[in-house]
Design a protein around this nucleic acid. Structure first.
Length: 278
DNA sequence: CACGAACCCTGGCTGC
DNA sequence: TGCAGCCAGGGTTCGT
């Protein structure tokens, strides 16, 4: 579910609640997430202080005071609920698998109906060589992502550019929605083979990816304030998409009468404007 | 090796 | 109304 902007929004919201705090207690209600939680998961985390909360692609990385890291991936349906000590509930939420209680009484509840999410412990010093991150592509909002790096990453690929951008080895953090949106903004057909996306298009694509992600993060930041007032749930947020899930609706940028097209590529839905995107 | 399909799991929506 | 079928923003595995 959550792509880079949602995970970044969750990271920001969570960091306010957990950074610098000690974990008092960890309760596991289900161990069989995408990866089974190890037997020593609770004992490894209890008493640890959270030094910082980072993100790599769609993964959250919590640096702990014992030089280890808690890695969290939310999969398709994972959510984080922050409950301040003042209005803590003793009732377990539906599909609640892991509950962290902090030293100040704050509770962080991880819910994930589909259980595609995961949590794992790793050595912080070697985090970049962890299997999750070893072959991961560059962060799209960092300097290491550029026309040069994207061009060389997709050079020679016979797969459609849509599928190439979903590949986390090419660029980190993009998912189905933001790939559709970025290709739309760049005016590139999702069906075009990656190897046939020339330099000029690659440059437009890099700019479009950055713009789409930054706008979504900004939208997430504003809903974060609403969430802080509401129930503390961190997950999806409302955002206006130009083409995603808008099959048949008129393309917002051109007056073509066809409307937004819906096709299926590698078993995932793609939305695009066949006139604007070539 | 590189690619696409199938699969993991549950809930919600659509259409009969 | 009831229910079968399909779809969902994740990633991995398997077969070609």
């Amino acid at each position: 579910m959550p792509e880079l902007p949602e995970v970044e929004t969750i990271r920001r919201g969570l960091s306010l609640a957990v950074e610098g705090k000690r974990i008092a207690e960890v309760e596991v209600r289900r161990r069989d997430l995408r990866l089974p939680l190890p037997d020593d998961f609770e004992s490894s985390l209890a008493g640890r202080r959270v030094l910082s909360l980072g993100r790599r692609g769609k993964y959250l990385v919590l640096a702990l005071d014992d030089a280890r890291a808690l890695i969290i991936h939310l999969g398709m349906s994972g959510r984080m609920l922050i409950e301040p000590a003042s209005r803590r509930s003793n009732v377990a939420a539906l599909h609640e698998h892991v509950v962290f209680t902090l030293e100040d009484g704050t509770r962080i509840r991880f819910t994930d109906p589909r259980r595609f999410g995961l949590m794992a412990l790793a050595e912080m010093a070697a985090i970049d060589s962890h299997p999750f991150f070893l072959d991961m592509g560059p962060e799209p909002l960092s300097e290491s992502f550029s026309g040069d790096t994207l061009y060389s990453a997709i050079k020679g690929k016979r797969t459609p550019i849509k599928a190439a951008l979903l590949d986390q080895h090419v660029v980190a953090g993009l998912g189905n929605i933001y790939v559709c949106e970025a290709l739309y903004r760049a005016g590139i057909s999702p069906r075009r083979l990656a190897m046939n996306v020339g330099r000029a298009r690659v440059e437009r694509l890099v700019a479009a990816i950055r713009a789409v992600l930054l706008e979504a993060i900004e939208a997430g930041g504003s809903t974060l304030k609403d969430y802080a007032r509401a129930d503390g749930e961190l997950g999806y947020f409302q955002h206006r998409f130009a083409v995603y899930d808008r099959a048949g609706e008129p393309c917002p940028e051109c007056d073509c009468d066809i409307g937004v097209a819906h096709i299926v590529q590698s078993n995932r839905s793609t939305f695009y404007c066949a006139k604007r995107q070539r």
